[in-house]
Design a protein around this nucleic acid. Sequence first.
DNA 1: GAGGGATGTTAATGCTCACTAACGCTTGTG
DNA 2: CACAAGCGTTAGTGAGCATTAACATCCCTC
Lengths: 206, 206
Amino acid sequence: MGPKPTIERRTAILGAAAELFAAHGYRGVTIDELGRAVGTSGPALYRHFPGKEALLGEVLVDVSERLAHRGAGLVARAAGPEEALELLLRGHIAFALDEPALITVHDRELGNLTEADRRRVRRLQRGYVETWVDVLAALRPTASRVTLRAAVHAVFGLLNSTPHSRGDLPRDRMAELLLAMGSAALTVPEPPLPETARPSAFGESA
Amino acid sequence: MGPKPTIERRTAILGAAAELFAAHGYRGVTIDELGRAVGTSGPALYRHFPGKEALLGEVLVDVSERLAHRGAGLVARAAGPEEALELLLRGHIAFALDEPALITVHDRELGNLTEADRRRVRRLQRGYVETWVDVLAALRPTASRVTLRAAVHAVFGLLNSTPHSRGDLPRDRMAELLLAMGSAALTVPEPPLPETARPSAFGESA
DNA sequence: GAGGGATGTTAATGCTCACTAACGCTTGTG
DNA sequence: CACAAGCGTTAGTGAGCATTAACATCCCTC
């Protein structure tokens, strides 16, 4: 065997890739930097991965799977939609706060994936979004799924802003804040989520 | 004079740069693509700009200035903080919906700027954020500015998600939705923006 | 204790790309 | 009418970088 357990090296590389891609973008990171980050030099990577694209693919597929699976699991074990929504929010917030690099890469690097990887990631993302939409649909039966989808994406934007924008706020304070803001945004109080224009009280043809 | 009014060409190049940088990232766009997008070929760019970095710089500084100036103007002409906040929200939403490429680039490409340009853009961004924080501080005197800053960044994340996530929702519907969600997020109802832990009723030393 | 596979290392190799050179057309002005 | 400036064009040119080659080492197995 080689100088280091091969599995450790693999995961070390994936971790470094996530960090570096998040910090400088996929295109802004070189193979040599990646190698140096795990204590080897450049081309040693090719003993573990077929290439740079494969690295990004594995990172993105992994994040997407974790989000989608955890999300589905949380909803499954929730008593009702209210609880499910809270669990989804808390779960996503914890993820965003604890793995900022993964969230950043997940948000930005879709475009640098192989066609095949991109399809896989998109499918997983869609599934995750639909999990949220299902829960919301139970809570707001009058809103269209199109609207709910847009709302969910908007809340993801809110929650995922964390890696870039968390100031001096301690982690848990930030988590509370995001939970409060996300809940509030998804349960808009007065004019409920704007729907298709109400049909005129006078019928279709004037 | 040349085949085209030089000013038109300049703005055409900047427009194409914004679109292309938003679509493929700064690093993912070549000078030749940029030229082709405005009907010339590659190096013609250098008749108008000193280089690729300068292009990105001009785009980003311009967006940041427009946001900051418009924001300050809106607040100045508002009657009170409630109205100011609504104007800020509506203004930012209109910008995000009408210039998705600019918002995207503004969000993602800070890291590819010259030191000098980055400083300028950061200063403008800070100013814009402080405009929002000032307004919010008037509305929620008990919240710390640190918390308010975090909340403002989070709402920017929500509003700026539009370019990536707007589904089939028509523009104006989306605008309403974002306004409702943004307002709700910034005026969290029950547990107000979480603040530093309330000092124990029993005093400091147990 | 010899062989072989898994890992690494340092030198190519070859492509992409920002930027520069060298040269041409067009147009407004003396 | 020259002619100079503005604007473009097509060929370099040189750096950066992913990937591959060729060669060394270590450790597990027989």
